[in-house]
C-alpha cells in the first residue's frame, strides 16, 4: 500500500497519520507493506516523524512541491505506482487529494473512491463506505480489479498510538521527481481575512444554514443568541456564499473549527464539510424541518420543526420564564 501526503511549507498536521491506521486496518492480518510518500521541498523532519510509525518513508523533494502542486505530485506518484505496484493508494480527502487520486487512477486505469469513511471485509472483497447526497445516504462500493485509489475522510480514523506496542522506525529515503518542470506554478499561500468574530471564545454558537430562507431571518438567529450570556452567530458555507454573513462566521473544513459548550444548528443539513468544523461541540441541538437531515445523526437534541415557527416560540417562552 502507498500512502500519499502533501505538505504546505514542509509541514502538515499530525492528524494526517490517521491514514496509517486506515492502511494498517485495511491490511488486517495479511502481510502488506505500507509505504508513506511525503511530498514537499525539504521534508526531512516530517518524514522522520512519519517513520516512527514503523513504515518506510519516501521523502519526495522538489522546490515546486513547497506548496501543494497536485498534478506534479500525482505524476511522480504514477511512476511510484508503476515501480511498487501497490494494492491500494491512500490519500487524505481534500479537494486536491481527490485530484491526485483521480489522476493516478486515470493513468493506471483503476477505480477511485473518494471520501471513504469506513470499510468492511465481506468474504474476499472489501466494501468501502462513503456518504452521498449531503450525508443523507451511505453507499458501499467495491472497487474492481487489482488496484484502487482512495481518499479517506479526515477524522474517520485515529492516529495510531505509538506508545502502545513496539514499533521499529522505518527508513527514510529521499527521492527527486523524475519528470520535467511542473506545468502549474504554485506562487504561495494566503490566509483569508479572519475578521473580528470571536467564534472560538464563545460558550454558545447559534449557527444559521440555508434553511433560514432569507437574510432577514438572521435577526431570529441573533435574537436566539442574545438569550445566552456568551453566544456568537455561526454559519454554513451556503449562508456565507450568499453574502448573508461575512466569511469569518463560516464553520467547517474551509472555515473555522469550533468546540463550544452548546452548538445550535438551525436549518443546516449537516454535510460532512460542515460537521468537520463543529463535531467537537459538547452539546449539539439541531433544528431542521427534514426528519432525515444528516445533522440529526450527530445531534444530542433533535427538533424536527420549521425554524421560523420554532425559534420565535423559543424566544417568547424564554421571555415568559424570566
Amino acid at each position: 500500500m502507498l500512502i500519499l501526503i502533501d505538505t504546505i511549507n514542509n509541514t502538515t498536521a499530525d492528524s494526517i497519520f490517521e491514514l496509517i491506521s486506515f492502511a494498517e486496518m485495511l491490511a488486517g492480518t495479511e502481510q502488506s507493506r505500507i509505504r508513506v510518500i511525503i511530498a514537499g521541498e525539504n521534508v526531512a523532519d516530517i518524514s522522520r516523524k512519519a517513520a516512527r510509525f514503523g513504515h518506510d518513508v519516501i521523502a519526495l523533494e522538489h522546490p515546486d512541491l513547497r506548496f501543494p502542486n497536485p498534478d506534479f505530485f500525482a505524476d511522480e506518484a504514477i511512476r511510484l505506482v508503476d515501480e511498487i505496484k501497490p494494492r491500494y493508494v491512500i490519500i487524505q480527502h481534500t479537494m486536491r487529494g481527490c485530484q491526485i487520486a483521480s489522476r493516478i487512477s486515470a493513468a493506471g486505469g483503476f477505480p477511485c473512491i473518494t471520501g471513504v469513511e469506513s470499510f468492511i471485509h465481506d468474504g474476499d472483497s472489501v466494501v468501502f463506505c462513503k456518504s452521498i447526497i449531503n450525508g443523507k445516504i451511505t453507499v458501499g462500493l467495491v472497487p474492481g480489479g487489482e488496484r484502487a485509489a482512495f481518499t479517506v475522510l479526515p477524522g474517520a480514523f485515529r492516529v495510531p498510538d505509538i506508545t502502545a506496542g513496539h514499533r521499529v522506525p522505518g527508513q527514510v529515503l529521499h527521492r527527486t521527481p523524475a519528470g520535467g518542470p511542473s506545468h502549474c506554478r504554485p506562487l504561495g499561500i494566503r490566509e483569508s481575512a479572519g475578521g473580528e468574530v470571536r467564534l472560538e471564545e464563545s460558550d454558545v454558537i447559534i449557527a444559521a444554514g440555508r434553511g433560514i430562507g432569507t437574510k432577514e431571518n438572521l435577526d431570529l438567529i441573533r435574537a436566539v443568541a442574545r438569550l445566552f450570556p456568551n453566544a456568537a452567530v455561526g454559519a454554513s458555507r451556503t449562508v456565507v456564499d450568499q453574502k448573508w454573513l461575512p466569511y469569518a462566521h463560516q464553520i467547517g473544513v474551509t472555515g473555522r473549527t469550533v468546540a463550544p459548550k452548546l452548538y445550535m444548528a438551525c436549518g443546516i443539513s449537516g454535510a460532512q464539510q460542515h460537521i468537520a468544523g463543529m463535531k467537537g461541540s459538547q452539546t449539539v441541538v439541531a433544528v431542521n424541518k427534514d426528519p432525515h437531515a444528516a445533522i440529526f445523526s450527530i445531534a444530542d437534541y433533535i427538533i424536527v420543526e420549521d425554524l421560523t415557527v420554532f425559534l420565535p416560540l423559543l424566544i417568547e417562552k424564554h421571555a415568559k420564564k424570566r
Binding site: 473512491i113 445516504i137 472497487p143 474492481g144
Partner: peptide
C-alpha cells in the same frame, strides 16, 4: 477499464443517537 460498483445502500446507521 475496471470500475467500482455499488453493493449496498442505506440510511446512515449512526442516525439519531440523540
Amino acid at each position: 477499464g475496471q470500475v467500482e460498483t455499488v453493493v449496498s445502500i442505506c440510511y446512515p446507521e449512526s442516525a439519531v443517537k440523540g
